[in-house]
C-alpha cells in the first residue's frame, strides 16, 4: 500500500490521521529562540493563546531534510511506495527539504513528492481523498494524478483582522496591493498558484462572512468542505450555520486553523476550504 505523507498545515482532524494511516510532518514554529513542532510540542489552542500574549512575533521554519530522510528510512521498512504531498513551495522551503532528502536516501523506496501549491484545508481535503484511495489499493501514479487534480480544484478562502502579520512574516504576496489603503478593510484572501492573493475586499467581518458564504454558494458542486477558525468561535458557528444550506453539515469537517499559517495571519481567523466539482 502507498504510504501518504503530508505536513501539519493540512489541518486534518487528528482521528483521520490514524484512521487513514496518513503520516504528518510537523512544521517548526519559533517564538524567539523557543522552538515548537506544530501539533506535537504545541496545540493550536496553546499557540493562538501565546500568539496574543507573547511579546515576540512568531516565525515559522521549514522541516529539515534530515527529518524527511529519517522519516523515509523508517517508512521504507513498512512500504515500498511513499507519496508526499506538501504545502505550497512558494511560501515554505519544506518541499525543497523533502526533495533533498529523497536524493539523500537513494533507492530505499519509490518516493514521490507533490507540491500542492495549497495549504490548510485545501491541502487537507485533497490529502484525505488521496489517502482513502491509497487504502483501497490505488497505484502511486494514479494517486499522484489524483493529488494534482484535487489540488487544482481545491480552494481555501480566509479572513482575518489585519495584514500586519502577513507583512512582517514576509508572505504578503499579492495582498501587498491592499496595503496603504485609507479605508479599514477586511480582505478575503486565497492562495493562487501558491501565492497569497486577495479575492475580495470587504469593510467588516459581517461582509467578509457573507463573501465566504457566497464563494461556497457560487462554487460548481462541492465535493468536500472544511471550515476552520482560530479564536473566533462565535463567527465560526455563524458561518457553519449559513453553510449548512449548501453542504451537509454532518459531512463538513471542522478544524482549528493551522498555527503555522496562523503565525502569518494573527488571531481571529475564519476560513472555508472546499474541493469544487469538475467543470
Amino acid at each position: 500500500m502507498v504510504k501518504v505523507v503530508c505536513d501539519s498545515t493540512a489541518d486534518i482532524p487528528e482521528e483521520l490521521y490514524e484512521k487513514l494511516g496518513i503520516e504528518m510532518v510537523p512544521i517548526n514554529i519559533l517564538f524567539g529562540s523557543e522552538s515548537y513542532r506544530d501539533r506535537i510540542d504545541i496545540t493550536p489552542e496553546q499557540f493562538y493563546k501565546k500568539l496574543v500574549e507573547s511579546k515576540v512575533f512568531p516565525t515559522t521554519a521549514a522541516q529539515s531534510p534530515g527529518y524527511f530522510a529519517e522519516l523515509f528510512t523508517r517508512l521504507s521498512k513498512e512500504t515500498d511506495e511513499i507519496l508526499v504531498i506538501l504545502f505550497s513551495s512558494k511560501i515554505s522551503a519544506t518541499y525543497e527539504s523533502a526533495i533533498q532528502a529523497k536524493a539523500l536516501v537513494g533507492n530505499i523506496a519509490n518516493i514521490e513528492i507533490v507540491d500542492s501549491l495549497q495549504t490548510c484545508g485545501a491541502l487537507g481535503l485533497s490529502v484525505i481523498r488521496v489517502a482513502e484511495e491509497a487504502k483501497k489499493g490505488a497505484k502511486i501514479n494514479e494517486l499522484i494524478e489524483l493529488a494534482k487534480d484535487l489540488c487544482s480544484r481545491a480552494h481555501s478562502y480566509v479572513v482575518f483582522d489585519t495584514l500586519e502579520y502577513l507583512l512582517k512574516g514576509g508572505r504578503i504576496g499579492r495582498a501587498q496591493a491592499l496595503l496603504g489603503g485609507l479605508l479599514k478593510l477586511t480582505p478575503v484572501l486565497t492562495l493562487r498558484d501558491g501565492i497569497v492573493t486577495p479575492v475580495q475586499r470587504t469593510r467588516n467581518r459581517t461582509q467578509a462572512i457573507e463573501t465566504l458564504v457566497n464563494l461556497v454558494k457560487g462554487a460548481n458542486k462541492i465535493e468536500a468542505l472544511m471550515i476552520e477558525h482560530a479564536s473566533t468561535p462565535d463567527d465560526f458557528e455563524l458561518l457553519a450555520g449559513k453553510l449548512a444550506e449548501y453542504y451537509p453539515k454532518e459531512k463538513t469537517l471542522r478544524s482549528f486553523y493551522s498555527p503555522v499559517i496562523g503565525a502569518h495571519c494573527g488571531p481571529h481567523v475564519l476560513c472555508v476550504d472546499f474541493i469544487e466539482g469538475k467543470q
Partner: peptide, 18 residues
Amino acid sequence: SHGALLGARGNSGVILSQ
C-alpha cells in the same frame, strides 16, 4: 554534515546543510 541535515531550518538552513 549529519548535524546540518538534522538541524536545517528554513531556506538558508537547507542550503547551508547542502
